[in-house]
């Protein structure tokens, strides 16, 4: 009985994930084609798994209730059925094929090379900041955890993180990107492996020292999108967030122009130890 209740509770919890999305229970659909693909796939596979789970656990729980010795059940003695074995081999295979098809399509879409890039951004991870170079614009800067979060996150700072806006998810210089444009990222690292991840874009990709990884995005909606380094990169791995400020192409042009004007300030500054 207890099992039954547990399972019911579990089912409920899962069933309501969609509705609870705002409370940070589920993946978000994001603001790019890729992120929506990933979200769609995620929900699809999740529901299939829930369905299989309900079925399998349902049978199990029924059996545990009905076929117990205390109810006077007599054990059957069957131990083998080729038909059953074939059925429960074939059906999962079919289900898997059904899952693999959209997954393959999605992967091909996401990994296909794009013919044109409106903008190329080189992203370099290093301990523990990100450096962005707009390759065709001659704009580059380093983006690190904002000062306030950095102060509060010190061991036993005694300050209340909930008083900090976007605690640990804010940076001094966000990455500014135009919406509706094809942006190409070239990811690499200077010291150890990092991973560049903004959930709203729908992917993460490792930044590996000595190699360059490519990735794409086309952001659909202006807004602020936050993410974090997603590969353990040492002591302050937890403190190298990513912030994208997605703006209209016009605003973007204006921003670039301004950056170029204040070129000196925008140039990469020597890296001071942050801790």
């Amino acid at each position: 009985m207890k099992n039954l209740k547990m399972m019911a509770a579990l089912g409920l919890l899962l069933a309501s994930t969609g509705a609870w999305a705002e409370y940070g229970l589920n993946m978000t659909p994001g603001v790019t084609e890729f992120s929506q693909i990933a979200y769609g796939l995620h929900m699809k596979i999740l529901w299939i798994c829930v369905a299989i789970g309900v079925l399998v656990f349902g049978v199990m729980i029924y059996s545990m209730i009905a076929h117990r010795k205390s109810k006077g059940a007599q054990p059957a003695q069957f131990s083998h059925s080729t038909t059953a074995e074939i059925v429960w081999t074939i059906i999962p295979i079919l289900i898997l094929v059904y899952m693999a098809y959209p997954a393959t399509k999605a992967l091909i879409t996401m990994e296909a090379p794009r013919d044109k890039a409106d903008l190329i951004v080189k992203v370099t991870g290093f301990q523990w900041r990100w450096r962005y170079d707009y390759l065709n614009e001659d704009v580059s800067f380093i983006s690190s955890l904002d000062a306030e979060s950095n102060r509060v996150r010190q061991l036993k700072s005694g300050e209340d993180p909930s008083q900090v806006k976007d605690y640990l998810l804010n940076v001094d210089h966000p990455l500014v990107l135009p919406v509706g444009k094809q942006v190409k990222f070239l990811l690499t690292a200077d010291d150890v492996i990092h991973s560049w991840w903004v959930p709203a874009l729908g992917w993460k990709r490792d930044a590996i020292p000595g190699f360059v990884n490519e990735a794409w995005t086309k952001i659909e909606k202006p807004g602020i999108y936050r993410g974090q380094c997603a590969e353990l990169c040492g002591r302050d791995h937890g403190f190298m967030p990513i912030v994208i400020k997605a703006v209209t192409p016009e605003e973007f042009e204006a921003w670039v122009a301004e950056q170029k004007k204040s070129a000196v300030a925008g140039r990469v500054q020597p890296i001071a130890d942050q801790s």
Binding site: K122, L186, T188, G210, F211, V212, E214
Partner: peptide, 16 residues
């Protein structure tokens, strides 16, 4: 080969 720019390595070679 990747470091030399083959296959997926075009940018690796070009940039680094």
């Amino acid at each position: 080969p990747w470091l030399g720019g083959e296959g997926a390595g075009a940018w690796t070679n070009f940039i680094l």
